[in-house]
Nucleic acid binder design. Sequence first.
DNA 1: AAACCCCTGATTGGATACAAGCGATGATCT
DNA 2: AGATCATCGCTTGTATCCAATCAGGGGTTT
Lengths: 229, 229
Amino acid sequence: MARSARAVAYEVLQRGIASGEYPPGSWLREEDVAAAAGVSRTPVREALHRLQAEGLVQILRNRGAVVVGWTARDLDDIYDLRVLLEGYGVRRAAQARENVDFDGLRAMCTEMELLLPGAAEPELQRIGGLCIDFHVTLNQASQNRQLIAIIPTLLATPFVREAFHHHTHHDLERAFAFHREILEALEEGDGEWAEGVMRAHLRAGRRSLRQMEQEQRTSDVGDPGRASA
Amino acid sequence: MARSARAVAYEVLQRGIASGEYPPGSWLREEDVAAAAGVSRTPVREALHRLQAEGLVQILRNRGAVVVGWTARDLDDIYDLRVLLEGYGVRRAAQARENVDFDGLRAMCTEMELLLPGAAEPELQRIGGLCIDFHVTLNQASQNRQLIAIIPTLLATPFVREAFHHHTHHDLERAFAFHREILEALEEGDGEWAEGVMRAHLRAGRRSLRQMEQEQRTSDVGDPGRASA
DNA sequence: AAACCCCTGATTGGATACAAGCGATGATCT
DNA sequence: AGATCATCGCTTGTATCCAATCAGGGGTTT
């Protein structure tokens, strides 16, 4: 078990934020997080800085880190960028098929499809992870270093990480079909096709999340966390 | 002078990398950098992590940080993304003109234009900084948090930071004209126009940098730094 | 002679100790 | 009473210290 303390702290924070243990607007005190993660403050600080880079927390000088809140606008913003960047990513991937890990990608597709029938919480969690991996792997084939660095950051946002939780069975089936079609387009080397499917896939995903956002909003207490200063 | 030690370390590293003091492939030992910056290792570590996030260095576990090298492909990759993202950014800005800091942007334009005639090294440096500020400010008007976080990272790459150094007088004049035209389009609220100008601006900029890359390549010792593992 | 293994030096990863800064509370003054 | 200012406590920022880990060199073995 050679996991670094920083990785432990990072995961504790990420899970805590995603699960609602650290709700938007709450302060993350280094000492507390360190105790919760069983490490010292040093790796916690590094994890917090990384989370700030990912936009999950905001660090105020000499005051600490606060969990940022997410609005429906943020969801739109993220998906705008995903459409642009991932569309570009698969277009580039289609132009360099030799970089595409078809075997790995197909394996992910298959596993997701097998998990879907009778999808309980743990399976859904696994599907969500696989879906993120799928997109990350896809973009790696673009061979664009900057893009490869940006995509995981975008996919680390709670919206994306928790997306599987808010999709219907039908949504997921459609998403999986899109995944397969993207691979098909890539095998053909048809970048336009691949990009089109990707854009459709992401737009559809955004639509599902938006609907659920609206439903949840009725029983919501407002927007406690969006720090603006 | 309330500058944090981390900021000092970060700037020392960034300057050192840009200036060639730390050439691609060289190792950045925390102790040495700490001594050079006049701080302790702790803030140096944090600065190195930030530079890794920006893609300027690569940190190998238990082995340290190595300066990454940049190839002509990286230049193309970065500008591909800039075209996509900054194009989107100004399009969005045109849809929300009230967020655009026209006064500030115009002031930057004016200062750049005034500095240009008789441009010695320090003036060019200032122009480069202003140009980056101009683009950052522009993208802030998009109000897309993720975009606002990504753009400075892209503009932190040596290619962009040193770009002014490799543009001809004529290149800069053209760039400044593009800047003015972008503002004009934004005032009209014409997102298509603004995006088109931005894309042209960036394509032209890339072209200039590419040419200079090729010229320099003749007297170059190869590619020592592009760490791939 | 070549390959392997252990040992050592150097460097990072992490923990602790100390200093500095911010915010809140409470006293004082108007 | 309201506002202002100083003080105190809590939290972060930085420095230093110790432990873990990797690379390289030298010796041994086959």
